[in-house]
Design a protein around this nucleic acid. Structure first.
Length: 263
DNA sequence: AAGATTGTTTTCAT
DNA sequence: AATGAAAACAATCT
């Protein structure tokens, strides 16, 4: 599920349903082998505390309070955070469950086990330890041009490099470049500054618009790539090309050869 | 049934 | 030393 907009949607769920409730227990869920989760000692640190705020940096989600501790959550490809109540059926693939006073619960779901949860003293520690770049919605255009525009690799790979810029993944890098009219395999440092500026602006528009939909992609404009992200599909942006699929930086990149230029 | 999948880390090469 | 590319990871779906 997760790139920046999806992480933001999950963050908001915590904010809406799990703040300012004392934590009774933090328990392991089902089938937790091969999943990195806090050990008993780390889980115990959370008991008796409350989450008073939920933050996000790139794709990472944090819940905690000023004095800590915090949970740091990476959703992997298929993870999600789901608040529920004791009377509800526990969500599928719940690997960790935070139990609050009253009946509220928060499940960390992770069907394909590529995500993880850590307990940290401060979100900044997590960001530093993983060398994450500035958040994609917070970075300014000059820093963006420097970090992404300076890359000698493919522009798509540069956008997805969490050390340069945190928050963009495969789907929204494709969408950003589709809307800007630049081929994903174009070498970033070959692009003139005004094109890099255009990528920056379009990236912000894409991320903001997707965050607004709360993960319901059908609410995005039909002219966008997302609903037609299949090889051979007619391009709804220019009406001329058919969507092609290529490998860029080891990932599947979809683009329209008619209106996305470069190579 | 082989191959792809919204992510990250490690390893190898330049 | 830094930067970039490719493989590995786990599970599920087509």
């Amino acid at each position: 599920m997760p790139e920046l907009p999806e992480a933001e949607a999950n963050r908001r769920r915590i904010e809406a349903s799990c703040l300012n409730r004392t934590i009774k227990a933090v328990r392991l869920g089902n089938d937790t082998d091969h999943v990195d989760l806090p050990d008993a000692q780390a889980r115990a640190r959370l008991e008796g505390r409350q989450f008073t705020e939920a933050r996000r940096h790139g794709k990472a989600i944090f819940a905690g309070s000023k004095s800590g501790p915090w949970i740091a959550v990476s959703l992997g490809m298929t993870g999600s955070l789901r608040p529920f109540d004791a009377a509800d059926v526990r969500p599928d693939h719940a690997r960790l469950v935070v139990e609050f006073e009253g009946d509220r619960r928060l499940a960390f779901r992770c069907p394909r086990k590529l995500g993880w949860v850590e307990v940290v003293d401060d979100p900044a520690d997590y960001v530093a330890a993983r060398n994450l770049g500035l958040d994609a919605m917070e970075i300014d255009v000059d820093a963006f041009a420097n970090r992404v525009g300076g890359s000698r690799g493919a522009i798509k790979s540069a956008l997805m490099d969490q050390k340069k810029l945190a928050g963009i993944g495969n789907l929204w890098s494709d969408e950003t470049l589709f809307r800007t009219g630049i081929r994903p395999d174009r070498v970033a440092s070959d692009l003139p500054r005004d094109r890099i500026d255009a990528v920056f602006e379009e990236m912000r528009r894409v991320l903001a618009a997707v965050a607004e939909t709360d993960m319901d992609y059908s609410r995005l404009p039909d002219a966008w790539l997302i609903a037609h992200r299949d090889a051979g599909a007619q391009c709804r942006h220019c009406g001329k090309g058919r969507i092609e699929k290529a490998k860029v930086g080891g990932r599947s990149a979809y683009y329209c050869p008619a209106h996305q230029s470069g190579a």
